[in-house]
Simulated assay, not measured.
Amino acid sequence: MKQMPSGCKTWIRGAYAALVLFACVFMQLPARAQAVNSEAQLPALAQRWLDQTLATQAARMEQPVRLQATLGPLDSRLKLAPCARVETYLPPGSRLWGQGRIGLRCLEGATRWNVSMPVTVKATGSAWVLRRDVAPGRPLEADDLMLAEVDWAAEPSPVLAARDAWSGQVATRALGTGQTLRQNMVRAAQVFQAGAQVRVLVQGGGFQISSQAQALSPGVVGQLAKVRMDSGRVLTTTVLDARTVQVEM
């Protein structure tokens, strides 16, 4: 395996890390090609390629996730000419995660052809699951969730595998018992309203000062909020907690 390009080393927490790493590894895999005499040999060829590709990816993922691919049927109407070299590949814009397709193309034969097959990739691993219903807008608590083995790839939104990924978050909609907690189900909590008095921390090279200000917009942890200083100056700050915002100089 070649050395991973620097662009693939970007870290992204939780399920994003697994998806990005998978894409980086997959793009470096060498093409595997072999001869086939008829379309009946294609499913076995495709399954071997999938098993090898997913085994390589699983060994490199940061999260302990078990990957399994199941091929759908090849179009029964196809009658393909024998081919000395058939390559299995991932079509542009596709990914081996959930529902997708893989391609098989003839590189050396009297008749060149290119076909595809449906594939379902399951990614089984530990993630947080709702042990009881949660109303929209309610903060998540430890008793609301439990760890369970789930299919990370069952839905497009990434799972929240780490506890700190949902701690302090609130439900964006009604959540039901048994649901796997995913990124689109939660958001950061609002910690103060417009008009609240907040402390402004101003940080720069080797110094930090604080002052009081009035919030001009609601405050959500980690997001931007505007405040008005006693001097009348309006600043765009980052919300740290229910009483503190920060400005970096």
Rank of each mutant, 00 (worst) to 15 (best):
A59I: 00
D51T: 05
T111K: 09
V227H: 00
A55I: 06
R48I: 01
P73Q: 12
S157F: 01
G232C: 09
P158D: 10
L29P: 13
I12V: 12
G205H: 05
L104W: 11
V20M: 13
P30M: 06
L147K: 14
A123R: 02
P30A: 12
A174T: 06
L96N: 05
Q28C: 09
R66H: 09
G195Q: 10
A35S: 15
V245N: 05
K9A: 07
T180D: 12
A162L: 07
N184E: 04
L71G: 04
T180F: 02
Q203C: 01
G232T: 13
T172M: 05
G93W: 10
W166T: 12
V239T: 11
R138P: 03
Q3K: 09
V159G: 08
L147T: 13
G204A: 02
S116V: 15
V239F: 11
P218D: 14
A69M: 04
G178P: 06
A44I: 05
G137S: 10
D230G: 02
L107E: 15
I102T: 14
Q223C: 01
P82L: 01
P139E: 12
G72Q: 07
L50P: 04
A148Y: 01
G195K: 11
P136A: 08
C24A: 08
R48Y: 01
E39S: 14
L216I: 03
S210L: 03
G205F: 02
Q41D: 06
T53W: 02
A153D: 05
Q193I: 08
S167H: 15
E108D: 15
L235V: 00
L181H: 09
L216M: 06
G125K: 14
W152M: 11
P5F: 09
L130Y: 08
K79L: 03
G178S: 11
V134K: 12
D133S: 12
Q197P: 06
S217C: 09
A142V: 07
Q34Y: 01
V198G: 09
P5C: 07
G176M: 15
P30L: 04
A154V: 11
A35W: 04
A213Y: 01
I209L: 13
